[in-house]
């Protein structure tokens, strides 16, 4: 290490599982589980007047003209925890997770909730319903 380097040994970033990474993993899984009929993405949300970081999880149905719905939001300080988790579509909207295990359990609860499952079921059904149209479409040539 150069004597001009006063940073010391930087921590291994792979060892830190930040909340947004857990959320992004779940977003990827939705595409894999539905053959990309439904996808999810994590969008950063800008918060004014605070140094907290915030993100939302959005479900998208590409074949339904990119219909999208936000199902949850999180916000947390730069140190990652505690995370405030807000379920946008269900009851019991706000809760707090003080560590990774608690956050994981909260995600499981929200993503597996009847409200989110109902939305996923409906979007999947409507996406599959589009398979019945289109056989006789004519194209301007």
């Amino acid at each position: 290490m150069s004597s001009n380097d006063l940073w010391g040994s930087l921590p291994d970033d792979e060892a830190i599982i930040v909340p947004v990474r857990l959320l992004a993993d779940q977003a990827d899984l939705l595409g894999q589980k539905t053959g990309n009929l439904l996808e999810a993405r994590v969008n950063p949300v800008s918060l004014s007047g605070t140094k907290n970081l915030a993100y939302e999880l959005e479900i998208i149905a590409p074949v339904l003209d990119n219909y999208s719905i936000t199902v949850m939001r999180i916000r947390h300080p730069i140190e990652s925890y505690p995370v405030v988790v807000e379920s946008v579509v269900g009851g019991n909207p706000m809760r707090e997770a003080t560590n990774e295990a608690e956050f994981s359990a909260t995600l499981r609860e929200i993503l597996g909730s009847s409200e989110v499952q109902r939305i996923i079921g409906s979007l999947l059904s409507q996406s599959k319903a589009t398979m019945r149209r289109g056989q006789d479409e004519s194209f301007p040539r």
Partner: peptide
């Protein structure tokens, strides 16, 4: 694809039969 009448949902199911590699860009 042009002049393709497969609804995107059906095409996705075909493309992603083995793994969900492809996505549709509406």
């Amino acid at each position: 694809l042009v002049e393709n009448t497969a609804p995107p949902a059906r095409m996705l199911l075909s493309l992603n039969k083995k793994s969900a590699d492809y996505r549709y860009h509406h």
